[in-house]
Design a protein around this nucleic acid. Sequence first.
RNA 1: CGGGGUGUGGUGUAACGGCUAACAUGCCUGUUUUGGGUACAGGUGACUCCGGGUUCGAAUCCCGGCACCCCGACCA
Length: 425
Amino acid sequence: MRQSQLFTKTRKEAPADEVAKNAQLLIRGGFIHKEMAGVYSFLPLGLRVLDKVEDIIRQEMNKVGGIEMRTAVFQSKEVWEKTNRWDDAVVDNWFKTKLKNGGEMGLSFTNEEAYSNILKQYISSYKDLPVYPYDFKSIFRNEARSKSGIMRGREFYWKALYSFSRDEAEHAVFYERMKTAYQNIFNAVGIGHRTYMTFASGGTFSKFSHEFQAITDAGEDSIHLDENSGIAVNKEVYNDEVITELGLRKENLVEKKAVEVGNIFSLGTKFSAPFDLKYKDKDGEDKLVIMGSYGIGLGRLIGTIVEILSDEKGIIWPASVAPFAVHLVDLAAGDNDVSAYAEKLYNELTACGIETLWDDRDARAGEKFADSDLIGIPLRVVISKKTLLEGKVEVKMRSTGGTTIVEKEKVFELARGCDTTTATK
RNA sequence: CGGGGUGUGGUGUAACGGCUAACAUGCCUGUUUUGGGUACAGGUGACUCCGGGUUCGAAUCCCGGCACCCCGACCA
């Protein structure tokens, strides 16, 4: 798209009320707008990133047999009473509201109840299992304190998948596949090299759950990491017994700050029991469904990418989630030949399916370069009087910095090259 | 929810209880410049978060509220 049509503008300074780097850069670049504490709107550039991340997750979920749907934002008091989680003494950070007729409802808090309730209508035989529904949706939590920019909000957008399996063995197989799927996702969005599967507290039905922790000082969690094996233990379950059980050696573990960008959880019959979610097995016997939950907060993930992949000039988006593949910067300054050339290249790139942001604004070179660095599109292509004279174009990778003069055709090659993920473990 | 802090043009900041609330940036005009936020000139833009109080006089002091940030607690 033409940058002149983008209503957002970059800012030199971050608002005083944002301390977190992720929010500072995302606001300065015009990706997000703060509505109130813990609540952010996604602006055009931000939505493009969000959509990219969503699509990466969707592909991985579909690969393991996930089936996408969309549960309602309003949640039923009656359904939640089955697990006793409507009670304010049990869950104290609900957003609840009243109906005109006096009834109560809640705003999406989490989805175990909704899925259990829905699937109960459709699961009756072992032939109906396993099944792996998921959705992307906004979640609302009345957190006592939101913090860290978009890392911990009161409204956030997530992906949640729930697995419904016949027995523990079947569940275990799927659970392992999800571990791989999650690592694929974090590799694909460019933080795989910093993200470690971490043993965390498991709840009623399993000793451990698994978190995916991305190492960054902006993190809220502390983990003990064995860098050789790539295995980590959350501080909350860290003790001698656990270390031994996991085959780790205390002297190899280093404590790191990290952000939980995803987690997977074995639920056993915790939800199927209260919902009486059963199926008939081959012998005609009733059995409770074995469940698991698998979540990723997309805003938090984007915030983590920004925390990890940025420098003093701005964001350095991995190509896989960048709002555009190419930032076409023309330094026409009123020179019609230059702008005509830029427009032609813009049209060619667009026709090739290469997403291009064309900075066609009448602004000075310095301002355009500063904006380009801040917004962080992977490949910058500069068209100017100088490059026109040479019959070539100038390119710069945001991640590496140096500029080179290349033939125009090379841009298409480089932009395609951007499609492969560079940062993997 | 406990503790601490901060609210001033769109944004970032300044202003002893005392002149018409200042500076930078942004935005608009003009000239200039044209490869790293160009320079100059002119202009625009603020019930100083809200409500009350003290005072001859309040952005400034006091009380109440609200909002935001940080630490902690919490975090399926």
